[in-house]
């Protein structure tokens, strides 16, 4: 897991660096769960997501938006995700547990995944991501 929170006055800005696109997506996913529910999260219940988008940024935004939706309506808190990406197609298996107010009420609601300032770049060391969560 490799992400940091970068100061942003209104919202939560996350920066992640990873050797592969899958790990980068996984880091952004972990950051989202950390902001929402804090660090104490276990596995057990699985959910699957498949998505297509027109570019990597849209794929990430759509993936995280779908995670927000599933977490809220199914009342699940996720600890991990197995992600496969081919071009602009994503398939993921999320692993989580039911929301428990005593352990998971540590965070802040995320209202949406913003396109503003969303950038995925690549260099010799791998991928880098900046993303803003509206809270």
């Amino acid at each position: 897991m490799s992400f940091v929170e970068v100061p942003h006055t209104a919202d939560v800005k996350i920066r992640a660096m990873a050797p592969t696109l899958e790990t980068l997506f996984s880091d952004a996913f972990a950051a989202l769960m950390q902001v929402l529910y804090g660090p104490d999260r276990n596995g057990g219940k699985k959910r699957k997501i498949t998505l297509d988008a027109e570019d990597q940024e849209s794929l990430l935004r759509d993936f995280l938006s779908e995670v927000l939706f599933i977490a809220e309506v199914d009342g699940l808190v996720f600890s991990g995700a197995e992600i496969h990406i081919e071009g602009c197609h994503l398939s993921a298996t999320l692993d989580g547990e039911p929301f428990d107010r005593r352990r998971h009420a540590m965070g802040t609601e995320v209202k949406g995944i913003s396109y503003s300032g969303l950038a995925i770049t690549r260099d010799a060391n791998g991928y880098m991501l900046d993303i803003v969560f509206d809270v």
């Binding site: 940024e57 949406g112 913003s114 396109y115 503003s116 969303l118």
Partner: peptide, 26 residues
């Protein structure tokens, strides 16, 4: 929140359809 997320996606396509140039995808 979901209405905003859903319609942003639809309006991204509309932005191209109506040939509007934007400095920020949001």
């Amino acid at each position: 929140h979901q209405v905003c997320t859903d319609h942003l996606k639809i309006l991204e396509q509309a932005t191209r359809k109506y040939q509007i140039t934007l400095p920020d995808r949001q």
